[in-house]
Design a protein around this nucleic acid. Structure first.
Lengths: 217, 217
DNA sequence: AAATCATTATAACGACTGTCATAGATCAAG
DNA sequence: CTTGATCTATGACAGTCGTTATAATGATTT
């Protein structure tokens, strides 16, 4: 079974956003992602991101001439890719182990940050006004979600499910886990995520048991 | 079967937030809820809410001496209660019909607002910084979620499921639907919600079929 | 050493935010 | 009619927002 708590691979506990060994540009992106996680899009200001990254404010517009939309988009993209890599790795061991790892990832984050954290990608999805300049941000969010659905769907297909069902289940897993994160934020504990995880586990076992029964007579 | 598109009971298409027949105080709350839906917490300004409600800015602090936190809290509370009433009514006809109505409610909203809308309750959950003054808002969100879980859980228990399982399933339904709304916002269509709805329907049928098989031998 | 480039520092711009104070209007009760 | 309470109107406060301009720095290359 995959070690499902190698949380550092996706989100290091000591984020290098103020580690001067990392170049300032990446520090800014990491700081933006961390702030999105806790405060949401509109409460994440360029000034505070720069301060958190220990970079001068002027540098922000040097590295990101597109301004805040570009900075946020890159933060969403980076976070999305990190999660996508994690999902690809963990779901390679099968949907069941993948789900456990997926849940464990977010559970750890919620616990570390006292349920004051969330997912940067969903923060942007929930908070953007979908105006003119927000288009690149929304595009980054949509791309991240697609990149998450891929490994989940592949894993379910490999396990024997039809493609259409696998795609639907992948969407459900992502929606349910992300929704549970919101519930946890509101309630201040991880109960909702635990309950959702248990039901999703039962659901997967059920779906895959049907495949096994049909596949080996 | 319950008419699952009486959307106006929960969220009127022509919101009375600028209907001068409604008293200004309630107009402000309705306008705040509508703005939360589309823009999120931090992008919802007191000035714009007042403008949308066609109420003077000064009136806002007359009716809501607690300021923005009070206004937002009441908007969350109102929206939460509306949805809770809708859930109580629709899930009384059984979990399956309730789920269909639940999904239809949000699907209609997404379609009407070109996927630019969401749930005010979740908007606050995703966007609050959990600071000092945000406590009443978070409390309103948590209360709303509890009020949603109740009718879902009751309906599932009535249908024959054990209490613990019913509670978990209720949480899953809420988390999955709310998460799907986020995905729809990001992707600009209602595909995610439709996929999630289909899987949740299968899941419910499965769980309830198990009960029926066990209940009538 | 000189010149070119990337980066920083500083300050400021206009627009917006939540909040409040105060003066004017409206209207019911005495 | 007058008093008192409720509501509106207006404008301002201190602060933050995203963004930009410009000058000073630092490093790299010629």
């Amino acid at each position: 079974m995959i070690s499902m708590l190698d949380y550092d691979d996706c989100y290091s506990k000591t984020m290098p956003m103020n580690d001067s060994a990392v170049d300032p540009r990446q520090r800014l992106v990491l700081a933006a992602a961390d702030m999105l996680r806790q405060r949401g899009l509109n409460a994440t200001s360029v000034r505070e991101v720069a301060k958190l990254a220990q970079a001068p404010l002027g540098s922000t517009y040097h590295y990101f001439p597109g301004g805040k939309p570009q900075l946020i988009s890159e933060a969403v993209q980076l976070s999305g890719e990190q999660v996508a890599r994690y999902l690809t790795r963990t779901f390679a061991a099968g949907p069941r182990d993948g789900l456990l790892a997926f849940v464990a990832l977010w559970r750890q984050l919620l616990q570390d940050k006292a349920c004051r954290a969330g997912c940067p990608v969903m923060a942007v999805a929930a908070d953007d006004s979908a105006a003119d300049d927000d288009a690149p941000m929304l595009a980054a969010v949509a791309a991240a979600i697609r990149a998450w659905q891929q490994p989940l769907g592949d894993s379910l297909v490999t396990a024997g499910l039809p493609a259409a069902r696998a795609a639907r289940l992948a969407t459900l897993l992502i929606a349910a886990v992300e929704g549970a994160i919101l519930l946890c934020r509101a309630q201040g504990n991880t109960t909702a995520l635990d309950e959702v995880a248990e039901e999703l586990r039962l659901l997967l076992d059920n779906a895959l048991a049907g495949v096994a029964a049909q596949g080996e007579p």
